[in-house]
Write a protein that binds this DNA or RNA. Structure first.
Lengths: 137, 137
DNA sequence: TTAGTCCCTTGCATTTTGCAAGTGTATGGT
DNA sequence: ACCATACACTTGCAAAATGCAAGGGACTAA
């Protein structure tokens, strides 16, 4: 198969990298995994509050791109931990470049570790029957 | 104004960088400008073939983000050249990180300079009356 | 039972993207 | 004058991606 068919847009390494992680969420997920987060819930609670359908979608894509691995860490019920592959860990260099650029050119931005409350945000308890009854009026 | 209002998602430098250039096209435009392209037409003719409405939109956004400057390079008709500001040139480090990652982990990808025909693709002559008549049947 | 947690899925409205064609201003050729 | 072409966009519209809110299954603890 030739170049025209093998790549979506061109053979450029930048273009193809962007086709994999060139959106507003993928690299944030990688960032969190690099910071040691491992579960869906931990990722969902990050300060940017990724919508859960997008989190599920991004994890799936990252897994099929060979950037993330999904492994069960408990049974009954089975729960999965998401971890970076070497390919995923190598994105750390890209993230570092973004951090340096952002800190230099976007006033007020920080590394997540410097953010208040350790970069975590509390999640509301949203799915109890009480909460649902309350919303229903 | 506090952090919650000043940033769209969080104070994280990565998140805010992605809010500016975290899509599939912006960094390709920056790449081309770094490679010395200067006009709308040159940018539009890059191998990835950015749709022209998106090119116009991205240039506008990059200008208002302080990454690109638009200056007239001729009169009658007035034509503009797009060039990178220091903030834009500094994105070179991000692009370099993407190139290294892509070349290592996405088989077959290249630097644009290594691509056939110097990374350029011919544009069809699409707006002549003859071409239009031909399409109309 | 009831409440709560965890990990997602689903429905749907809004926004973004992408394709194709059109527009306005100019130059060069005949 | 007339035609072809170039350049730099704009416009219209369909398709895809995003984001919000709610739903749901599997389980634990009270």
């Amino acid at each position: 198969m030739d170049t025209a068919k093998r790549f979506a847009r061109s053979a450029c390494a930048i273009a193809n990298s962007l086709d994999i992680v060139g959106d507003k969420w993928s690299l944030l997920v990688v960032r969190d995994l690099l910071h040691g987060k491992r579960t869906y819930g931990e990722l969902a609670r990050s300060p940017e509050r990724i919508p859960t359908n997008l989190l599920a979608d991004r994890l799936e894509r990252l897994v099929s791109a060979g950037i993330v691995t999904r492994t069960p860490y408990q049974q009954r019920p089975v729960r999965y931990a998401y971890t970076l592959t070497p390919k995923g860990r190598a994105l750390g260099d890209v993230l570092l470049a973004f951090v340096r650029w952002g800190k230099q050119y976007i006033p007020g931005t920080l590394t997540l570790k410097q953010a208040p409350a350790g970069g975590e945000v509390a999640a509301p308890a949203a799915n109890s029957r009480r909460a649902r009854a309350k919303r229903a009026g």
